[in-house]
């Protein structure tokens, strides 16, 4: 059953093949190749330029944006927009909340996923199939939003920081990904440790985990990006905006633009914006860049391990 997904031939490729594999096809005529390069270049440009534009706007004064909205380089360079958002208490606080949730959450995710995955990789254990199905069923059918809401309310988790961590402690998909990897590690590697009297915990810790660094990095990054970009948990289960995670506050600023006055030490409030050299558009742009930079910093790892994850699991939406 689940093993089948891991055995696909796709799995044996490395991320290098996918990132930089060479074509085995015949060369195209020069004009066809030209068209292909132009289309690909175009796809890169439409992805990149909107972000460059936002970056330029975030560092420019408002009147320049009005004159040349499609700017790709800052004009009348100013850091006012960034000063403004860094004085916004709500944004900084939510940043702290999300950093905590990402670090703590990912650690707990990996702990629960790895122990569960190791146990489920032992196919000789009685009840193994039943336990595996208990993990798979939630991928097919979920109770829905409202039963979850009532459960969390009864558990007293609404408006608690733990609601951002506990309800998503283990993702079935990640557990099965990791389980298939553990399962493919030859049993013989564990035997010598067992002869020396090592417990299951020891085997997992000192034999399996060191051999599984790539899959742990992959699954860990899946979880971490999930926490960082998590918006809905906050939307559904946290009504107190002083406890909002980053994405909720970003949405208020970027899309609604209604929270910048809250907790801003800046004497210029939004109603006073005419006194500023920057306008809401600049501040929104700065907020977007503020949100992109952390992802950009870890992007090399993300790209490498997410591609790996796709090939380990064959499918990841």
């Amino acid at each position: 059953m689940v093993e089948q997904t891991a055995n696909s031939n796709v799995e044996q490729l490395t991320e290098k093949d996918v990132l930089a594999g060479t074509s085995k096809l015949d060369a195209n005529p020069w004009w066809a190749q030209g068209i292909i390069y132009i289309i690909l270049l175009g796809s890169g440009v439409i992805t990149l330029l909107p972000m460059v534009n936002v970056w330029a706007i975030s560092l420019s004064e408002a009147h320049e944006v009005f004159k040349d909205p499609m700017m790709l380089w800052p004009k009348s360079f100013t850091l006012e927009s960034y000063k403004y958002i860094f004085n916004t208490q709500v944004l900084l606080k939510s940043f702290g909340i999300t950093v905590f949730v990402t670090v703590m959450g990912t650690f707990l995710n990996l702990l629960f996923t790895a122990t569960g995955a190791y146990g489920l990789s032992k196919t000789h254990v009685p009840g193994h199939k039943i336990m595996l199905w208990l993990i798979i069923i939630p991928m097919l059918f979920g109770a829905g939003l409202i039963p979850m809401y009532i459960l969390l309310k009864n558990l007293g988790l609404l408006n608690s920081i733990w609601v951002l961590i506990l309800p998503k402690l283990v993702a079935s998909f990640n557990l099965i990904l990791m389980r298939n990897f553990f399962w493919s590690i030859p049993e013989s590697l564990e035997e010598s440790a067992r002869i020396d009297g090592a417990s299951e915990f020891r085997v997992l810790w000192s034999i399996i985990l060191p051999l599984s660094k790539p899959v742990i990095a992959t699954v860990g990054l899946f979880y971490a990006v999930g926490h960082w970009n998590d918006f809905f948990t906050g939307l559904f289960f946290i009504s107190d905006n002083s406890k909002w995670p980053l994405q909720m506050v970003l949405r208020s600023i970027i899309i609604d633009f209604n929270m910048l006055n809250m907790g801003t030490q800046n004497t210029n409030t939004l109603n006073d914006a005419s006194k500023l050299v920057v306008q809401p558009e600049n501040i929104k742009a700065a907020t977007i860049i503020f949100a992109i930079v952390p992802i950009l910093i870890v992007y090399p790892f993300l790209q490498k391990y997410f591609v790996k994850g796709i090939m380990l699991g064959s499918v990841k939406g």
Binding site: P50, V54, Q247, R251, I255, I288, A291, I295
Partner: peptide
């Protein structure tokens, strides 16, 4: 890797 909040922000721009 960007959230829909951030990407929608770029589109709104």
């Amino acid at each position: 890797f960007l959230s829909w909040v951030v990407f929608a922000g770029i589109i709104y721009n």
